[in-house]
């Protein structure tokens, strides 16, 4: 029995390690490409570069139009920070209402919420663009950030609704007996207890906002407010020459913050619940 368990544990570990290599392969490949001189990037397929250069990092960081990656990283952080704040506040408020409160034609509103994410983004782009343009918001962060504060990410509302519904209603009832109103119940019970959902929201918002190319590209046209993701694209030109090495080098750097954020927050995801724990 004990042997079988150990065997099982080792097998699991070996399999997980093989899997880990498959998962990491692209990252290693990008890392190695970022150190290869340009003429080797597409001809030398090995993971270990036969010649090393740091040139791509130097060229890459210099950025474009007089703005270095310092600016682009700063912009990305501002955008991501505001987006996380917006999503957590606005979506949790809405989710609480959908999960616990009673209001007229609730099901219809819920359907509309889900319906709004079923329509491909490309066809609502122009009406939204016209709206933001008339507000004078184009070429600022506002068209990207304000929607987050208006809970337009139905994904997170729905996610939080599912989590809140998993929280026993007795807790609400007990609080109500203690004289808490809906606002106090939300603030004191629901919000802390949905930590896993909030952490998940924060992680996903970080990654998706960081990587989101399409809407950033449409709304941020001046390089001074470009994000890392936009700047990365500018190394490439399908109609001409592309700076592949610099693109790989900066891609590697752009992954670092998301990765660190993920590692820190996934601890919260795992440990956070232990401290608030459902009794």
């Amino acid at each position: 029995m004990k042997n079988r368990k150990r065997f099982w544990g080792i097998t699991k570990f070996v399999l997980l390690s093989i899997g880990a290599f498959v998962m990491l392969y692209p990252l290693l490949w990008m890392l190695s490409s970022s150190f290869k001189p340009i003429h080797l990037i597409f001809s030398d397929l090995s993971l270990w570069p036969s010649e090393f250069t740091l040139e791509h990092y130097k060229v890459g960081w210099a950025g474009l139009s007089g703005y270095t990656y310092t600016t682009f990283f700063k912009n990305s952080f501002i955008l991501v920070g505001l987006s996380i704040l917006g999503n957590i506040v606005a979506c949790s408020l809405a989710a609480y209402a959908f999960a616990r409160l009673d209001f007229s034609i609730k099901k219809v509103w819920f359907a509309i919420m889900l319906g709004s994410i079923m329509l491909p983004y490309h066809v609502v782009l122009i009406p939204q663009y016209i709206l933001f343009n008339n507000l004078g918001w184009v070429d600022t962060f506002l068209p990207l950030v304000v929607p987050k504060f208006l809970a337009t990410d139905a994904f997170f509302i729905f996610l939080m609704v599912q989590f809140i519904r998993g929280i026993p209603k007795e807790l609400d009832n007990a609080a109500r007996v203690d004289g808490c109103g809906p606002i106090a119940i939300f603030a004191k019970i629901i919000f802390p207890l949905m930590t896993p959902a909030l952490v998940t929201t924060a992680i996903f918002t970080f990654i998706w906002t960081w990587n989101d190319f399409f809407s950033q590209f449409i709304y941020l046209s001046s390089p001074k407010i470009w994000t890392v993701t936009l700047a990365l694209r500018s190394f490439l030109d399908a109609m001409g020459e592309s700076l592949w090495g610099a693109m790989f080098a900066m891609s590697i750097l752009s992954i670092v913050p998301i990765f660190i954020f993920f590692i820190i927050f996934q601890r919260l995801l795992i440990e956070g619940i232990a401290t608030t724990g459902i009794k």
Binding site: I126, I130, F217, S221, S222
Partner: peptide, 18 residues
């Protein structure tokens, strides 16, 4: 307002439409 080739046309048509 610089941009890469493929993306350029998407933004330009959106801007023009708007």
């Amino acid at each position: 307002e610089p941009s890469g080739w493929g993306d350029y046309w998407t933004r330009l048509s959106t801007q023009t439409a708007g």
